[in-house]
Design a protein around this nucleic acid. Structure first.
Length: 1104
RNA sequence: GGGCUUUUAGCUCAGGUGGUUAGAGCGCAGUCCUGAUAAGACUGAGGUCCCUGGUUCGAGUCCAGGAAAGCCCA
């Protein structure tokens, strides 16, 4: 045999593939060949545009595996659209500004308070924030590239950019013009550590914690009723110093209760609290009177801290409040308008004074005597002590409840009266709702969630009393109360009367912008910018405008706006990114900023619990990529139902990695990962198979062509399946679904490897490269390469690796990378549904045949004479006859016989078609069903025969004559007992189980061949190696084997065969491997004893 | 308290417009096949489709009420 170069590079077996390693190799190859740049520009001249808008990733930490989930979708759809020829922008975004960055920088610098920051210097601090953002943007870019995420990385947008900030300015100016912007006094959730308000949007679920606080039952002495008290309850003792009123529900019934000679008022339905609180110091109680809450309204009482200067002149009254409930506490609610949201609302309604007791750090201000200078968080017990001294404490009680904490630093929030800036939602919310209706929400319930949020959204607080963020362009005149909004840099310059020189040359950030003063248009006073920075969701919300030059190149903007597609994890984003984009786009253009929104759920750890850095179950992206591989991870994501949480399987441990390094084998993955990895392995196996045999045959796909007409039915079938797969994958992806396409691809792969390849083995195994073998190679090649093309957006690395070997190595005119290929087009003409059905019929009958063999306990290697088959329709009989070869080969049976309708092997039963009978007979249908069910086996057989022969079955049901047609009642064949059969809904396979001596011999020969094949492998021969073979046995078996010598030799690639009954006969080859088979060994050949010897064959003095 | 989601096999999940034998994968048990070997095929066991009522000839599917879990908001 002459030694020719291989057509393809030889391929290692699937279990030797180190995917992460392979991914690195591909990555480098892409880099050296500039593939990404070619990809980004390949559709530059295209008329078709696809506008993807990336939700900016917070550039504050390295990426986790949860980011990889979203980025897989982002990459996949953009790749899909690229292959379809759409021009795109491929712009990635980084979210840069905001408190989260500040918090991390503070930690890094060891700063604890805002005062520390100011001492450190705002300019230096802001610089550090910028540095941090750029550091992590770089890191995240590297990580994304490792995922195979292809973006125009040099063109990423940063929300800290001047353009982004100034576009927000123009938005705010428009808000001002529409009178949507106002300075509000409101009670806000407030973080005393960060010294800033927390907007509603930021009160994340994670922010709520199960906490235990000291709650107090306090008695308020009634002024005109000596010895009588209101019994009020609070979970925030620190707010008692700001009490101005007590609220009762006017609708509810309250009770006056006598206890230890004193009288308490509380809601009747909560008298149980007295019982629960009855301790050593409290006696029995009894109700002396009941009254409506409304009757108590207007009563005056002595406040708990009337001695404090801040409380001076406050008249404490009982007020009505419908929301006062009787589910916990006492039904009497302590009201401190400076410390609670509802309280503040009531105070506005009823004209009550509001006392704001604490400063921005949660420390009591002047006027609170001994409390002044103390933290709200530390005063609980002190207040209790003080009240006890004054005789006002009824009882303390520890109370567990969900309490909000700061979403960044976890400090418990307080509620505090502040000045902040708001965008009014009064009318805007309805405009936004109209915009929401224009959007395609996937999943559909996203629409409901967004609408719900919009209905309930309070005015949007956009200011933050911090340092690193958008400089709100609001100039609030302290003299006349007028405020103005500056819409851009030029306007600022024009209006500036001071500070421009210091600012010029800097980005629009603090502190340089703080020095600018403008002249108030109303009163001429010099006005400074408010010190606040903007809510960071403004930064992200503007990107549908700022990233495509809304202000500077309106034509360009129009070409790319609105985005076709955005996607993010939806928990949270309905009130964050989605919301802020909707608000801003509604104000700016009254239109939707994107057409389709695709949301996915949350990534959890393997056991379904949330991943947290602190819990130690967080999986960093890089480790997952290096241990299981990016392609595998991506395939996991693509297969998962997006609206459901994804439990990310645990990755191999350090120990696993070490073991793998020691053994030199790829690391073993867990069961759960293997579920995903198996698909990649299977692709590899098919690839391996093709390359191995194509090399043996020197098959070069570019050198051959064969029209479909000259190919086999099997070829037609798999090509038809391929076309259907293209159709299904394409339409699935077009609807932003990855799961159905992934399933379709997988199922095609199953068909290809489990049936097509299996059935084609014989064709490829033949020695000569005839048309049939060519057809098999060409068909397999076409299927494999098309499958790879479709898989390339899912698993960009693996598909590239295979493409390079399979396509590029033989065709230098093909696109340089699989990612520069076109998306495959469906060829309708090649779809043959009939063939699909027929092939499935063959598979089904083969399955039944195997089942029958199993029942008979006859393994497939033992040939049998006949299989009797029954199928329900004539068309299927015809098809089966045509395709019988496939069935017989698979089952190792010599003849296939169809069982006719009157076969002695068959029985019949009736199967009513309810879907047809129901509409026709209505209520009678249940009676007909009952009747048919009630028939005995014999009666059923009779009825079936009648229906078969006459075409109708006439019954009398409830005195009514009913004629049923074969359409309405299907006659189903079943197997008669006594044959070895398997059946399934009218399909029956029966086995002739007689094993003649000849069949037994044939079975033994097949066993023998199988043993020799096994030995070849053990001896280390290559698939195409020829061997020498010697068999030593007794006379009887030798005689049996005699006629099969040629078959044995050709099946085992033996160049010669020594069949001998004498161990003294020596073979002409050099012995390599030997096995002894006897009734005692694990391998058995009947009762015979046999020695098999394999050797390297020597001919003409050289090894062949 | 309100909104959204989920509840189907041991586990993870499929089950257009209602149709009488509810599926898949994994796991389990057993068998087969194999030069794809961490693969593949077959068979089997395993279900009160969360509960209750209703609509209907017929409900896993539609309606109402309820329960549990998750998320969001008060």
């Amino acid at each position: 045999m002459s030694v020719k170069a291989n057509v393809f590079n030889p391929v290692v077996a699937a279990d030797r593939v180190d995917y992460p390693q392979l991914e690195h190799t591909i990555q480098n190859w892409w880099a050296t060949h500039n593939i990404l740049q070619q990809y980004l520009h390949r559709n530059e001249q295209s008329e078709k545009r696809y506008s993807f808008l990336d939700g900016p990733i917070t550039a504050n930490n390295p990426m986790g595996v949860h980011h990889a989930w979203g980025r897989t979708y982002k990459d996949l759809y953009q790749r899909f659209k690229t292959m379809q020829g759409y021009k795109q922008r491929y712009q990635n975004g980084f979210d840069c500004q905001g408190l989260w960055v500040e918090v991390n920088v503070e930690q890094a610098l060891g700063l604890k308070t805002k005062r520390d920051i100011e001492d450190y210097g705002i300019a230096a601090f802001v610089e550090k924030c910028k540095e941090r953002v750029f550091t992590f943007a770089k890191r995240q870019t590297e990580q994304s590239i490792r995922l195979g995420y292809w973006m125009d990385w040099d063109n990423s947008y940063y929300t800290l950019s001047d353009e982004n900030n100034y576009t927000i300015w123009s938005f705010l100016k428009k808000c001002r013009e529409r009178d949507l912007l106002y300075k509000g006094h409101d009670v806000m959730p407030w973080c005393p550590r960060c010294a800033t308000g927390i907007s509603n949007m930021e009160m994340e679920a994670e922010g709520y914690k199960e906490l235990t606080h000291l709650s107090l039952y306090v008695r308020f002495p009634l002024l005109d009723r000596p010895g009588e008290y209101l019994l009020a309850w609070t979970t925030t003792p620190w707010t008692l110093a700001a009490n101005v009123a007590a609220a009762v529900n006017p609708e509810l019934t309250y009770a006056k209760v006598e206890q230890d000679g004193e009288y308490y008022y509380l809601v009747e339905s909560l008298l149980s609290v007295l019982k629960a609180l009855k301790g050593r110091d409290k006696g029995e109680y009894k109700v002396v009177e009941t009254l409506k809450g409304s009757e108590m309204v207007g009563w005056k009482y002595q406040g708990p801290f009337d001695e404090l200067p801040a409380e001076k002149g406050i008249v404490h009254t009982v007020i009505p409040w419908k929301e006062a409930n009787a589910t916990e506490g006492t039904g009497i609610v302590h009201i401190a308008p400076g410390c609670g949201k509802e309280d503040f609302g009531l105070s506005k309604e009823l004209g009550l004074p509001a006392i704001a007791p604490v400063d921005e750090f949660g420390v009591y201000k002047e006027g609170f005597d001994w409390l002044t200078g103390k933290q709200t968080s530390e005063v609980g017990p002190l207040v209790a002590e003080n009240l006890t001294k004054k005789g006002l404490l009824y009882r303390p009680q520890n109370y567990k409840h969900r309490y909000p904490t700061c979403w960044r630093c976890k400090t418990e929030l307080i509620f505090r009266l502040v000045d902040e800036w708001f965008i009014s939602m009064d009318t805007l919310r309805y405009e936004i709702m109209d915009v929401v209706r224009q959007i395609n929400w996937i999943p559909a319930f996203g629409f409901d969630r967004e609408m719900d949020w919009l209905r309930n959204m309070d005015d949007w607080m956009i200011s933050k009393k911090r340092y690193w963020g958008l400089a709100l362009p609001i100039f609030d005149c302290q003299q006349c109360g007028n405020f103005e909004v500056i819409g851009n840099r030029e306007e600022l310059q024009a209006r500036a009367v001071a500070g421009w020189e210091e600012f010029d040359g800097h980005t629009p950030h603090r502190p340089y912008i703080d020095g600018i003063k403008i002249k108030c248009q109303k009163c001429g006073n010099e006005v400074s910018r408010i010190k606040d920075v903007g809510n960071p969701w403004l930064d992200a919300g503007i990107v549908p405008y700022s990233t495509i030059h809304y202000r500077t190149d309106h034509e360009y903007w129009k070409q790319w706006f609105p985005a076709n597609f955005v996607t993010e994890s939806f928990p949270g984003q309905f009130r964050n990114w989605f919301y802020s984009m909707l608000v801003m786009s509604t104000v700016l253009e009254k239109t939707a900023p994107f057409k389709t929104l695709f949301g996915y759920a949350t990534l959890m750890s393997e056991d379904g619990t949330p991943m947290h850095k602190s819990k130690g179950n967080m999986i960093v992206f890089d480790e997952a990529a290096e241990r299981v591989g990016s392609d595998t991870m991506r395939w996991l994501y693509a297969n998962h139902t997006p609206e459901q949480n994804l439990n990310f399987p645990s990755i191999p441990t350090d120990k696993d990695m070490q073991k793998s390094a020691e053994s030199g084998l790829p690391v073993r993955l867990s069961e759960k990962w293997m579920l995903t990895r198996r698909t990649l392995d299977k692709i590899w196996n098919v690839y391996w198979f093709f390359v191995t045999y194509a090399n043996i045959d020197q098959f070069d796909p570019t050198q051959h062509q064969l029209p479909m007409a000259s190919r086999s039915e099997l070829d037609h079938w798999i090509i038809s399946e391929l076309q259907q797969t293209i159709r299904d994958v394409t339409s699935g992806l077009e609807q932003y679904d990855t799961t159905k396409p992934a399933e379709a691809l997988q199922s095609f792969l199953e068909d290809l490897s489990n049936w097509y390849l299996r059935r084609s083995r014989e064709r490829i195994w033949k020695s000569q490269l005839d048309d049939d073998k060519l057809a098999a190679y060409l068909t397999l090649y076409e299927c494999l390469t098309t499958l790879l093309t479709m898989l390339s957006p899912f698993m960009p690395f693996l598909t590239e690796e295979i493409y390079q070997n399979l396509v590029r190595s033989v065709d230098q005119t093909a696109p340089q990378s699989i990612h520069l290929c076109d998306w495959p087009q469906v060829d309708q003409a090649l779809i043959n549904e009939q063939l699909t059905n027929e092939t499935h019929l063959v598979m089904r009958i083969v399955g039944l045949g195997r089942a029958a063999r199993e029942k008979a306990q006859i393994r497939v290697r033992q040939p049998l004479n006949a299989l009797y088959v029954h199928v329900p329709t004539v068309a299927e009989e015809e098809a089966l006859q045509r395709l019988s070869d496939q069935v017989l080969e698979e089952l190792n049976i010599k003849h296939l016989e169809l069982m006719s309708a009157d076969s002695a092997m068959l029985n019949y039963t009736l199967r009513p078609q309810v879907k047809i009978l129901g509409p026709k007979y209505g209520p009678l249908v249940q009676k007909i069903l009952g009747h048919l069910k009630g028939l005995s086996a014999h009666e059923a057989q009779e009825a079936a025969t009648q229906l078969n022969s006459t075409g109708t079955l006439t019954l009398t049901i409830a005195g009514q004559e009913v004629s049923l047609t074969p359409n309405e009642v299907e006659v189903l064949a079943t197997a008669r007992p006594g044959f070895v059969t398997a059946e399934e809904r009218g399909y029956i396979a029966a086995l002739e189980t007689t094993i003649t001596p000849l069949l037994r011999e044939e079975g033994m020969v097949r066993d023998l061949i199988h043993f020799i094949q096994d030995m070849r492998k053990k001896a280390g021969f290559n698939i195409e190696d020829h061997i020498g073979l010697a068999i030593y046995t007794d006379r009887e078996l030798a005689q049996i084997l005699q006629p099969y010598q040629t078959e044995i030799m050709s099946e085992t690639l033996a160049l010669n065969l020594l069949l001998s009954i004498s161990p003294r006969d020596f073979p002409s080859f050099e012995e390599v491997y030997r096995e002894h088979i006897s009734p005692e060994s694990t391998k058995k050949l009947g009762n015979y004893t046999i020695d098999i010897v394999l050797g390297k064959n020597v001919r003409d003095g050289k090894h062949v």
